[in-house]
Structures are given as structure tokens and as C-alpha cells.
Computed example of a mutant assay.
Amino acid sequence: MAVVKLTTANFDQEVLKADGTVLVDFYADWCGPCKMMGPVVEELSGEVSGVKVCKINIDEEMEIAQRYGVMSIPTFISFKNGEIAGKQVGAVPKSRLEEMVK
């Protein structure tokens, strides 16, 4: 499944109203660790079934980053049925992201 690009306009529909698990990658284009995690997130989206993988640029959507207390990037937040199920800050191995969405 392709990675979904989130905005303020589609966040509630794509994440909070989604059935099942959603992994959201909070990132910025200028962030080195975020660039490093980009291919990992893409890879994960193609390998894990039943999980929606999304990215949100914190420079473009600062309001959502503030709502979820994102102070450092990359930050990964997993949601299950609209509720926060886990949070991970920083570049991590793909296996850690896989654990978050199980």
C-alpha cells in the first residue's frame, strides 16, 4: 500500500476515523534522520498488510504536530481505531516500527 500524505484537511479522516492500525511518520524535508527513515517507511508500507502508513510534514502542518506533542523528528505515532497506541522518537530499525503496528 502506498504511503498516504497527511494534511490538516485529511488527518481526521485518514487517521482518527480509520478502522485498524495507522502509523504516522512526523518528518521534515530538511531533517537528516527523517531522510534516512524515508525508505524504511516506504518499505514497511509495502510489507505490512492491514496497516495504513502515513507521513506528515511538520513544517507544513505544524498544528497537528503541536496537537500530538511532537518536539523532535522523526517521531512515529501508531493509532489503533483512532486512539494513540504507541510513540517512538528518532531514527529506529524497521523492526521497531513493525512492533509498533502489531
Rank of each mutant, 00 (worst) to 15 (best):
residue 56 I to C: 00
residue 58 I to M: 00
residue 31 C to E: 02
residue 92 V to D: 08
residue 83 E to N: 11
residue 96 R to S: 02
residue 37 M to L: 06
residue 32 G to S: 11
residue 67 R to S: 15
residue 98 E to C: 05
residue 5 K to Q: 15
residue 61 E to Y: 14
residue 45 S to K: 06
residue 28 A to L: 03
residue 91 A to G: 14
residue 50 G to L: 05
residue 91 A to H: 05
residue 58 I to Y: 07
residue 20 G to S: 09
residue 14 E to A: 10
residue 33 P to A: 01
residue 80 K to S: 04
residue 4 V to I: 14
residue 59 D to H: 06
residue 41 V to G: 07
residue 79 F to N: 10
residue 51 V to K: 11
residue 65 A to N: 11
residue 36 M to L: 00
residue 100 M to R: 11
residue 48 V to P: 13
residue 50 G to R: 07
residue 67 R to P: 15
residue 58 I to G: 09
residue 70 V to Q: 00
residue 6 L to P: 13
residue 77 I to C: 09
residue 21 T to F: 08
residue 58 I to P: 09
residue 56 I to E: 01
residue 46 G to H: 06
residue 63 E to C: 00
residue 92 V to C: 12
residue 54 C to M: 03
residue 57 N to H: 03
residue 76 F to S: 05
residue 62 M to P: 15
residue 35 K to P: 12
residue 90 G to E: 05
residue 41 V to R: 01
residue 86 G to W: 04
residue 52 K to N: 04
residue 21 T to D: 01
residue 36 M to F: 09
residue 95 S to T: 14
residue 89 V to S: 02
residue 84 I to H: 00
residue 56 I to M: 04
residue 33 P to I: 02
residue 11 F to C: 02
residue 78 S to D: 01
residue 37 M to S: 02
residue 60 E to I: 10
residue 63 E to R: 14
residue 36 M to N: 08
residue 2 A to S: 15
residue 54 C to N: 09
residue 81 N to P: 07
residue 97 L to G: 12
residue 59 D to M: 05
residue 97 L to E: 08
residue 39 P to Y: 07
residue 95 S to Q: 13
residue 55 K to S: 10
residue 30 W to M: 05
residue 42 E to G: 14
residue 28 A to C: 11
residue 100 M to L: 10
residue 9 A to H: 13
residue 22 V to Q: 01
residue 29 D to W: 10
residue 35 K to R: 12
residue 63 E to W: 08
residue 16 L to V: 06
residue 15 V to R: 03
residue 32 G to L: 08
residue 54 C to K: 05
residue 2 A to P: 15
residue 27 Y to H: 11
residue 50 G to S: 08
residue 57 N to E: 07
residue 28 A to G: 06
residue 2 A to H: 13
residue 29 D to K: 14
residue 80 K to Q: 12
residue 33 P to V: 10
residue 90 G to F: 00
residue 98 E to W: 04
residue 12 D to F: 06
residue 27 Y to Q: 02
residue 15 V to G: 01
residue 4 V to W: 07
residue 99 E to T: 08
residue 66 Q to Y: 11
residue 73 I to T: 05
residue 25 D to I: 05
residue 80 K to L: 11
residue 81 N to E: 09
residue 38 G to Y: 08
residue 101 V to T: 06
residue 62 M to V: 15
residue 41 V to M: 05
residue 38 G to R: 04
residue 61 E to T: 15
residue 100 M to I: 09
residue 7 T to C: 10
residue 75 T to M: 02
residue 82 G to K: 00
residue 82 G to Q: 06
residue 53 V to H: 07
residue 61 E to V: 15
residue 49 S to V: 15
residue 6 L to Q: 10
residue 97 L to N: 12
residue 21 T to I: 13
residue 52 K to Y: 02
residue 84 I to G: 09
residue 95 S to E: 12
residue 77 I to L: 03
residue 26 F to W: 09
residue 73 I to H: 02
residue 90 G to W: 03
residue 27 Y to P: 13
residue 74 P to T: 10
residue 57 N to G: 10
residue 29 D to Q: 14
residue 49 S to Q: 15
residue 21 T to H: 03
